[in-house]
Protein backbone atom coordinates (compact mmCIF):
# COMPACT_ATOMS: atom_id res chain seq x y z
CA UNK A 1 0.00 0.00 0.00
CA UNK A 2 2.65 2.45 1.13
CA UNK A 3 4.91 1.10 -1.56
CA UNK A 4 2.22 1.92 -4.12
CA UNK A 5 1.95 5.43 -2.76
CA UNK A 6 5.70 5.90 -3.07
CA UNK A 7 5.76 4.38 -6.50
CA UNK A 8 3.20 6.92 -7.63
CA UNK A 9 5.20 9.76 -6.06
CA UNK A 10 8.22 8.40 -7.87
CA UNK A 11 6.38 8.42 -11.20
CA UNK A 12 4.98 11.88 -10.47
CA UNK A 13 8.54 13.10 -9.97
CA UNK A 14 9.63 11.32 -13.10
CA UNK A 15 7.14 13.24 -15.19
CA UNK A 16 7.57 16.52 -13.33
CA UNK A 17 11.31 16.33 -13.76
CA UNK A 18 11.06 15.63 -17.43
CA UNK A 19 8.31 18.09 -18.24
CA UNK A 20 9.33 21.13 -16.16
CA UNK A 21 13.04 21.00 -15.81
CA UNK A 22 14.14 18.59 -18.49
CA UNK A 23 16.69 17.01 -16.18
CA UNK A 24 17.79 18.08 -12.75
CA UNK A 25 21.50 18.22 -13.41
CA UNK A 26 22.45 21.19 -11.30
CA UNK A 27 25.28 19.77 -9.24
CA UNK A 28 28.84 18.77 -10.00
CA UNK A 29 29.07 15.09 -10.94
CA UNK A 30 29.38 12.72 -7.96
CA UNK A 31 28.84 15.41 -5.30
CA UNK A 32 25.36 14.25 -4.14
CA UNK A 33 26.82 10.85 -3.25
CA UNK A 34 24.79 7.68 -3.42
CA UNK A 35 21.99 5.97 -1.48
CA UNK A 36 22.82 4.34 1.82
CA UNK A 37 21.35 0.96 2.87
CA UNK A 38 18.44 2.60 4.70
CA UNK A 39 17.43 4.54 1.58
CA UNK A 40 18.66 8.03 2.49
CA UNK A 41 21.10 9.98 0.40
CA UNK A 42 24.60 9.40 1.70
CA UNK A 43 27.43 6.95 1.52
CA UNK A 44 26.95 3.20 1.78
CA UNK A 45 26.12 2.96 5.49
CA UNK A 46 26.01 6.58 6.68
CA UNK A 47 23.35 9.18 5.73
CA UNK A 48 25.00 12.42 4.62
CA UNK A 49 23.87 16.04 4.74
CA UNK A 50 23.54 16.08 0.95
CA UNK A 51 20.12 15.28 -0.40
CA UNK A 52 19.93 12.45 -2.92
CA UNK A 53 20.11 13.35 -6.60
CA UNK A 54 21.14 16.36 -8.63
CA UNK A 55 18.23 18.73 -7.90
CA UNK A 56 18.90 22.38 -7.09
CA UNK A 57 16.71 25.01 -5.44
CA UNK A 58 14.74 25.27 -8.68
CA UNK A 59 14.32 21.61 -9.55
CA UNK A 60 13.12 18.22 -8.40
CA UNK A 61 14.95 14.97 -8.86
CA UNK A 62 14.15 11.32 -8.31
CA UNK A 63 16.46 8.39 -7.85
CA UNK A 64 16.43 4.70 -7.03
CA UNK A 65 19.05 2.30 -5.78
CA UNK A 66 19.53 -1.35 -5.00
CA UNK A 67 22.33 -2.84 -2.97
CA UNK A 68 23.49 -6.18 -1.70
CA UNK A 69 25.77 -6.82 1.25
CA UNK A 70 27.14 -10.33 1.61
CA UNK A 71 29.09 -11.27 4.72
CA UNK A 72 30.06 -14.65 6.15
CA UNK A 73 26.72 -15.77 7.62
CA UNK A 74 24.29 -13.10 6.47
CA UNK A 75 23.32 -11.01 3.51
CA UNK A 76 21.22 -7.91 3.13
CA UNK A 77 19.31 -6.87 0.03
CA UNK A 78 18.07 -3.33 0.06
CA UNK A 79 16.21 -1.29 -2.54
CA UNK A 80 15.09 2.27 -2.13
CA UNK A 81 13.68 5.28 -3.94
CA UNK A 82 14.31 8.94 -3.19
CA UNK A 83 12.68 12.18 -4.23
CA UNK A 84 14.51 15.46 -3.78
CA UNK A 85 12.30 18.56 -3.71
CA UNK A 86 14.20 21.74 -4.52
CA UNK A 87 17.29 20.49 -2.70
CA UNK A 88 15.46 21.27 0.51
CA UNK A 89 13.51 18.12 1.34
CA UNK A 90 14.33 14.52 0.60
CA UNK A 91 11.78 11.76 0.97
CA UNK A 92 12.85 8.14 0.78
CA UNK A 93 11.46 4.66 1.06
CA UNK A 94 13.47 1.46 1.36
CA UNK A 95 12.78 -2.24 1.67
CA UNK A 96 15.33 -4.55 3.23
CA UNK A 97 15.57 -8.32 3.22
CA UNK A 98 18.08 -9.73 5.67
CA UNK A 99 19.01 -13.33 4.99
CA UNK A 100 20.06 -15.22 8.11
CA UNK A 101 21.92 -18.20 6.72
CA UNK A 102 22.31 -20.21 9.98
CA UNK A 103 18.52 -20.15 10.52
CA UNK A 104 17.65 -20.29 6.82
CA UNK A 105 15.17 -17.45 7.17
CA UNK A 106 14.65 -13.91 5.94
CA UNK A 107 13.93 -10.83 8.04
CA UNK A 108 12.16 -7.95 6.34
CA UNK A 109 12.17 -4.29 7.25
CA UNK A 110 10.74 -1.17 5.62
CA UNK A 111 12.06 2.32 6.21
CA UNK A 112 10.43 5.65 5.45
CA UNK A 113 12.86 8.53 5.56
CA UNK A 114 12.76 12.29 5.37
CA UNK A 115 15.59 14.78 5.44
CA UNK A 116 15.60 18.55 5.46
CA UNK A 117 18.54 20.67 4.41
CA UNK A 118 18.80 23.24 7.21
CA UNK A 119 21.52 25.41 5.75
CA UNK A 120 24.73 25.50 3.76
CA UNK A 121 25.83 24.09 0.46
CA UNK A 122 28.18 21.13 0.26
CA UNK A 123 30.42 22.77 -2.33
CA UNK A 124 29.87 26.52 -2.41
CA UNK A 125 29.50 27.78 1.15
CA UNK A 126 32.43 27.98 3.52
CA UNK A 127 30.36 26.38 6.29
CA UNK A 128 29.35 22.76 5.83
CA UNK A 129 25.90 21.72 4.71
CA UNK A 130 23.79 20.72 7.70
CA UNK A 131 20.72 18.51 7.46
CA UNK A 132 18.27 16.95 9.86
CA UNK A 133 16.73 13.60 9.04
CA UNK A 134 14.53 10.82 10.32
CA UNK A 135 14.22 7.17 9.43
CA UNK A 136 11.06 5.48 10.56
CA UNK A 137 11.59 1.72 10.59
CA UNK A 138 9.22 -1.20 10.81
CA UNK A 139 10.42 -4.76 11.14
CA UNK A 140 7.88 -7.08 9.54
CA UNK A 141 9.38 -10.34 10.74
CA UNK A 142 9.99 -9.75 14.42
CA UNK A 143 10.16 -13.26 15.98
CA UNK A 144 13.94 -13.43 15.93
CA UNK A 145 14.25 -9.90 17.33
CA UNK A 146 11.92 -10.64 20.25
CA UNK A 147 13.60 -13.99 20.88
CA UNK A 148 16.92 -12.14 21.21
CA UNK A 149 15.44 -9.68 23.71
CA UNK A 150 14.37 -6.70 21.61
CA UNK A 151 11.56 -4.61 23.08
CA UNK A 152 9.88 -3.34 19.94
CA UNK A 153 9.49 -4.11 16.27
CA UNK A 154 9.49 -0.48 15.14
CA UNK A 155 11.47 2.63 15.89
CA UNK A 156 12.50 6.01 14.59
CA UNK A 157 16.05 7.21 14.17
CA UNK A 158 16.70 10.94 14.16
CA UNK A 159 20.00 12.24 12.88
CA UNK A 160 21.81 15.45 12.17
CA UNK A 161 24.49 15.40 9.52
CA UNK A 162 27.20 17.83 8.46
CA UNK A 163 29.02 17.44 5.13
CA UNK A 164 31.57 19.47 3.24
CA UNK A 165 33.40 19.07 -0.02
CA UNK A 166 36.68 20.95 -0.15
CA UNK A 167 37.64 21.70 -3.75
CA UNK A 168 41.26 20.92 -4.58
CA UNK A 169 42.02 20.49 -0.90
CA UNK A 170 44.43 17.58 -0.94
CA UNK A 171 47.11 18.19 -3.54
CA UNK A 172 44.43 19.43 -5.92
CA UNK A 173 42.00 16.58 -5.23
CA UNK A 174 38.52 17.21 -3.87
CA UNK A 175 38.00 15.99 -0.32
CA UNK A 176 34.63 15.19 1.21
CA UNK A 177 33.87 14.59 4.85
CA UNK A 178 30.65 13.89 6.70
CA UNK A 179 29.81 13.50 10.36
CA UNK A 180 26.41 12.28 11.52
CA UNK A 181 25.02 12.02 15.06
CA UNK A 182 22.09 9.63 15.30
CA UNK A 183 19.61 9.03 18.07
CA UNK A 184 18.56 5.40 17.74
CA UNK A 185 17.42 2.33 19.62
CA UNK A 186 17.82 0.06 16.62
CA UNK A 187 19.60 -3.26 16.95
CA UNK A 188 21.60 -3.98 13.79
CA UNK A 189 19.92 -0.96 12.16
CA UNK A 190 16.50 -2.39 13.16
CA UNK A 191 16.82 -5.83 11.58
CA UNK A 192 16.99 -7.27 15.11
CA UNK A 193 14.34 -4.97 16.50
CA UNK A 194 14.60 -1.98 18.80
CA UNK A 195 15.72 -1.58 22.41
CA UNK A 196 16.74 -4.25 24.90
CA UNK A 197 17.87 -4.90 28.45
CA UNK A 198 21.37 -3.62 27.82
CA UNK A 199 20.26 -0.22 26.52
CA UNK A 200 22.74 2.59 27.30
CA UNK A 201 24.01 5.27 24.95
CA UNK A 202 21.44 6.39 22.45
CA UNK A 203 23.50 8.86 20.45
CA UNK A 204 25.73 7.17 17.90
CA UNK A 205 28.36 8.87 15.80
CA UNK A 206 28.94 8.09 12.18
CA UNK A 207 31.52 9.44 9.79
CA UNK A 208 32.53 9.15 6.18
CA UNK A 209 35.31 10.63 4.18
CA UNK A 210 36.21 10.36 0.52
CA UNK A 211 38.58 11.65 -2.10
CA UNK A 212 37.63 12.13 -5.73
CA UNK A 213 40.43 10.67 -7.81
CA UNK A 214 38.91 12.22 -10.93
CA UNK A 215 35.51 13.48 -12.00
CA UNK A 216 34.09 9.96 -12.05
CA UNK A 217 35.79 8.04 -9.28
CA UNK A 218 35.70 8.39 -5.50
CA UNK A 219 37.36 6.29 -2.82
CA UNK A 220 36.66 6.53 0.86
CA UNK A 221 35.95 4.98 4.22
CA UNK A 222 32.96 4.98 6.52
CA UNK A 223 32.43 4.28 10.18
CA UNK A 224 29.17 3.83 12.02
CA UNK A 225 28.78 3.40 15.76
CA UNK A 226 26.00 1.10 16.91
CA UNK A 227 24.46 0.45 20.29
CA UNK A 228 24.56 -2.96 21.94
CA UNK A 229 21.05 -2.97 23.39
CA UNK A 230 20.74 -6.76 23.22
CA UNK A 231 24.07 -7.37 24.97
CA UNK A 232 25.23 -9.58 22.11
CA UNK A 233 28.42 -7.64 21.49
CA UNK A 234 27.07 -5.68 18.51
CA UNK A 235 29.99 -3.95 16.81
CA UNK A 236 30.44 -0.68 15.03
CA UNK A 237 30.43 -0.94 11.25
CA UNK A 238 33.25 0.02 8.92
CA UNK A 239 33.76 -0.03 5.21
CA UNK A 240 36.16 1.07 2.54
CA UNK A 241 34.56 1.93 -0.78
CA UNK A 242 35.10 2.92 -4.36
CA UNK A 243 32.27 4.66 -6.21
CA UNK A 244 32.06 5.21 -9.94
CA UNK A 245 29.91 7.93 -11.52
CA UNK A 246 30.05 7.48 -15.31
CA UNK A 247 27.38 10.19 -15.75
CA UNK A 248 24.56 11.89 -13.85
CA UNK A 249 22.18 8.99 -14.34
CA UNK A 250 24.15 6.12 -12.86
CA UNK A 251 26.54 5.24 -10.09
CA UNK A 252 28.04 1.96 -8.95
CA UNK A 253 29.59 1.48 -5.52
CA UNK A 254 31.73 -1.42 -4.36
CA UNK A 255 32.84 -1.72 -0.75
CA UNK A 256 34.61 -4.07 1.58
CA UNK A 257 32.62 -4.12 4.81
CA UNK A 258 33.40 -5.16 8.35
CA UNK A 259 30.14 -5.60 10.25
CA UNK A 260 31.80 -7.23 13.26
CA UNK A 261 29.53 -9.47 15.31
CA UNK A 262 25.89 -9.99 14.28
CA UNK A 263 23.60 -11.88 16.68
CA UNK A 264 26.71 -13.08 18.53
CA UNK A 265 28.24 -14.59 15.38
CA UNK A 266 31.46 -12.71 14.92
CA UNK A 267 33.81 -11.81 12.07
CA UNK A 268 31.13 -10.76 9.61
CA UNK A 269 33.20 -9.29 6.80
CA UNK A 270 32.35 -9.26 3.14
CA UNK A 271 31.30 -7.18 0.17
CA UNK A 272 28.81 -4.49 -0.65
CA UNK A 273 27.68 -3.70 -4.18
CA UNK A 274 25.19 -0.98 -5.00
CA UNK A 275 23.80 0.62 -8.11
CA UNK A 276 21.91 3.89 -8.20
CA UNK A 277 19.90 5.47 -11.00
CA UNK A 278 19.17 9.18 -11.10
CA UNK A 279 16.53 11.00 -13.12
Amino acid sequence: MIMNKFTSIFYACFFTVFSLNCLAEGKILATPGVSQIEGSGGGGIVPWAQLAGYATEESISASAACSRVTVKDFSLDSCGVQANFYDRIELSYAKQTFEVNPLKLDLKQTIIGAKINLFGDLVYTSLPQISLGIQSKRLKTSDVAFALGAEKDSGTDVYIAASKLHLGFINGYNWLWNITARHTKANQIGLLGFGGANEKAKIQLEASTAILLDRHLAIGVEYRQKPDNLGLGENHWKDIFVAWFPNKHLSVTLAYVDLGSIAAIDKQTGWYLSTMWYL
Partner: peptide, 23 residues
Protein backbone atom coordinates in the same frame (compact mmCIF):
# COMPACT_ATOMS: atom_id res chain seq x y z
CA UNK B 1 31.10 9.51 22.61
CA UNK B 2 34.69 10.57 23.30
CA UNK B 3 35.95 7.20 22.19
CA UNK B 4 33.83 7.48 19.04
CA UNK B 5 35.17 10.96 18.38
CA UNK B 6 38.72 9.70 18.74
CA UNK B 7 38.05 6.89 16.29
CA UNK B 8 36.39 9.27 13.85
CA UNK B 9 39.36 11.63 14.09
CA UNK B 10 41.72 8.73 13.51
CA UNK B 11 39.76 7.74 10.45
CA UNK B 12 39.81 11.24 9.05
CA UNK B 13 43.55 11.52 9.63
CA UNK B 14 44.09 8.17 7.95
CA UNK B 15 42.19 9.27 4.89
CA UNK B 16 44.05 12.56 4.67
CA UNK B 17 47.30 10.63 4.80
CA UNK B 18 46.08 8.11 2.24
CA UNK B 19 44.94 10.95 0.05
CA UNK B 20 48.27 12.74 0.23
CA UNK B 21 50.18 9.56 -0.51
CA UNK B 22 47.87 8.30 -3.25
CA UNK B 23 47.57 11.57 -5.08
Amino acid sequence: VEMGMRKVTQYLMLVILLGCAAC
